[in-house]
């Protein structure tokens, strides 16, 4: 877990896929509500760059997504997480996990939330 999405950069997100994640969910504070002014805005730009990279290398851009939530929105967090997990399960294992021979059941457990 990172204290601020402003610390996230493209290489960390790609590393998650290298380490076997089928999907990566990035959750930052609400826009305009960043303790460090624009950490979450920077994170969004970086997530969008990774989105483009994943599209270029056929991993699938829909395997990464950024959400903005406040610390008080527990129910929304759960709803977003379920929504993303459903989306990734529908996509199935990433091409990396398919090559590595990792099955769907394992990949279901490996959906990572940041």
């Amino acid at each position: 877990m990172l204290p601020c999405t402003g610390r996230i950069d493209e290489s960390l997100l790609l590393k998650a896929f290298e380490n076997g994640a089928d999907g990566v969910m990035v959750i930052g504070c609400l826009e305009g509500d960043c303790h460090y002014v624009n950490g979450n805005i920077r994170a969004r730009a970086r997530v969008e760059r990774v989105y483009t990279i994943l599209e270029q290398i056929n991993i699938g851009p829909e395997r990464i997504r950024m959400y903005n939530l406040s610390a008080g929105e527990g129910a929304k967090f759960a709803a977003f997480t379920n929504e993303f997990v459903d989306q990734v399960q529908e996509l199935g294992p990433s091409p990396i996990n398919l090559v590595r021979g990792n099955g769907l059941k394992k990949s279901e457990q490996e959906v990572q939330a940041t």
């Binding site: 990433s94 990396i96 090559v99």
Partner: peptide, 8 residues
């Protein structure tokens, strides 16, 4: 990016 693309 290259490792992912090549492994895939």
């Amino acid at each position: 990016t290259l490792r992912l693309a090549r492994e895939a």
